[in-house]
Amino acid sequence: MADDFDLTPPELTTEDLLVLDDPRFGPETAAIVTGAASGIGHATALALAANGLTVVGADVDEEGLDDTAGKAAALDVPGEVHTVPTDLTDDDDVAAMVDAAAEAGDLRYVANVAGMQHIASIPDFPMGKYDLLLDIMLRAPFLTAKLAMPHVRDAGGGAIGNMSSVHGHYATQDKAAYITAKHGLTGLTRAIAAEGGGTLRGFSVSVGYVLTPLMVNQIEDTAEERGISEQAVVEDVMLGQARTKEMMTPAEVANLFVFGFSSHATHLNGGDMLHDGGYSTTYE
């Protein structure tokens, strides 16, 4: 790889995290974070705990969840991270996750972060993989919202944030299931806003390429699918159209959820926070 691109996911520190003074950010407030075992979900769980919230981190990866809880303890953040092993394709597991969060405090916030990727053209795309991606990234957020919204209303309001992508705004090749799910999240986000009465908000976060373990794997898969080098994937495919020539870090994405949940984002409702370095908004 070129020296300009370090593909080692960065080590997160408390200095990376946005901490806000917000009357609802305290231990009595609970937040769900899916995909909390790694990457953006891991960082989001830590960022919310750094703001004093009680976080229920959910993931199918129990070892990764333990690492997230251990990292919270190592950083000595004021909020607690409770781990709830959860298979998002299992409705009973999703219900148990929401129940655990409601028992942990006033459930006000949900960060639907969990995701996965599969690289293949549409004619070659395995339907089993398609179904799995849609189950995790669209059906599970819908079910989580369905079960969480009554609790958020009972708590007096809050927000459900959905992890979208620049691929929720446009399409590239070989990612059809991912693109379909992210476009669907736009509709879910707006539907939550439409039914939220103004105090229960829905928003999405769209970013470009984020340096996570999942992304490193995607670079390898894309290089193989397109028959090009990994360096070409980073320089030409991922960052070629962007104006900001570096990948985002998980902490930078997590901070967007912190802001979106806060009282500073009262008018962020049904909308999308697009931070893509100009990828989808400029061209040559």
Rank of each mutant, 00 (worst) to 15 (best):
Q218S: 14
T29V: 15
E224G: 05
P78V: 08
T89E: 14
I160G: 01
G70M: 07
E235H: 10
H82S: 04
N217P: 04
L143R: 10
L134N: 09
G70I: 03
G184R: 01
A159Q: 06
A232Y: 05
D87Y: 04
H167I: 09
A47V: 04
A232H: 14
D76V: 11
P85S: 06
A37I: 10
L133N: 07
A120G: 11
A74F: 02
A177L: 06
I119N: 13
T68C: 12
E62P: 04
L65S: 09
E15L: 09
R139L: 06
N217G: 15
L200G: 02
Y178K: 10
Q231H: 13
A102C: 05
Q241H: 05
H275T: 14
K245F: 03
L147Q: 02
T29H: 14
L147C: 00
E63T: 15
H183N: 06
M163N: 15
F203C: 11
G156C: 02
A223I: 05
M273Y: 11
E11H: 08
V205F: 05
G270C: 03
I32F: 00
M248Q: 14
G168I: 02
Y170D: 11
D221I: 09
L18Y: 03
T34R: 05
E11G: 06
A191S: 13
A96F: 00
V56P: 05
A45K: 04
L138V: 04
A36V: 05
A30T: 08
V113P: 11
S280R: 00
V166Q: 12
